[in-house]
Nucleic acid binder design. Structure first.
Lengths: 171, 171
DNA sequence: TAATCCGATTGCATTTTACAACTGGTTGCA
DNA sequence: TGCAACCAGTTGTAAAATGCAATCGGATTA
């Protein structure tokens, strides 16, 4: 699997790689939701991705070197999907894209609190987050997937999301 | 014309708006190439966009409020396309996306020099550029389109591109 | 041992994309 | 005044992508 290379422009090539409806959404779920199994990505998707689309995206992202796939030693049928360095390096892109969406599109509060924190944290926070992601996805993908390994940054983002959700449900 | 709103997540909504093969490429050409007419966008496209796709993208981006369209007073058949504020606000996204593409994808030197300058310039340069774009596309779209109005930042980026191209052709 | 869970695949209808040819009209130049 | 070049698109058609629901064979769990 390869991209078309219609031109050598970085923006064009980037769009050839992630310029579709689902690739960045799948990467987002792996990155911010720490969803590392097929079923997890499928059933906990807020947007309701179809299973054949998810399968084709995972295969494609793997072929392009953005993610990796390994057998889960705790379960003969499970596979662990992990972010590779190119996908981890998308953190600043996703941060800016989230900031843009938050400003111009009809986002909901609970689903944009993480984007807000990431925007306010700036490049320093992005670097911290990327360091954490390298541990969870590259150094120790198994521990990262099963929750043995934790990311302080991810924990903060997740807690903020849960807080907003609880407040909106309770108040 | 409207987006689906499968979820209120800023990244999802952003991908519903610009998550396709061509939208950001068209915006890139308007922004960095100052291409403001249909024929200009069509025939000077490095990637060879098809005319029906270009027409449908322009219509869609206009409906979504990212660009505007006006008659060109100097020519009864020409239309001037201009970036609206939401598209101008994509500068940081395009800068980060270009930086990512430059790092991980097979870009060419001449087509990535502008991305390099934009990356090195950082947020300060992006702000300058966005200010310029507001003049060329919102305050004075006609002068911006016909070259009466100039952008210092765009002039620098364009000159750097022409220099690299000349060097590669001549040396 | 029966129900559930696992990562997918299959079949099929709809939508989008791609490419080439073409349209009705305008403009600039000889 | 006539004609070539240019203008913003549209049309026709084939190929590919998407979306959805049902399903697969095997593994795990209660």
């Amino acid at each position: 699997m390869d991209i078309e290379r219609r031109s050598g422009c970085p923006i064009n090539l980037s769009m050839e790689v992630v310029g579709d409806r689902w690739s960045l959404v799948v990467i987002r779920d792996m990155m911010f939701g720490n969803r590392r199994h097929f079923r997890d990505l499928l059933t906990r998707s807020h947007e309701g991705i179809a299973s054949n689309i998810l399968a084709s995206r995972l295969k494609r992202l793997k072929a392009l070197g953005l993610i990796t796939r390994m057998d889960d030693p705790s379960h003969a049928q499970k596979a662990i999907y992990s972010l590779a360095e190119p996908a981890i390096a998308l953190v600043p892109v996703l941060a800016m894209l989230g900031a843009w969406g938050r400003r111009f599109l009809p986002v909901t509060e609970e689903l944009s609190i993480r984007a807000q924190l990431l925007e306010e944290g700036g490049p320093a926070l992005w670097e911290d987050f990327m360091r954490d992601l390298r541990v969870l996805h590259i150094e120790d993908p198994i521990g990262g997937a099963n929750g043995t390994r934790k990311s302080p940054v991810l924990a903060r983002l997740t807690q903020a999301y849960l807080d907003v959700r609880a407040r909106k449900a309770g108040g």
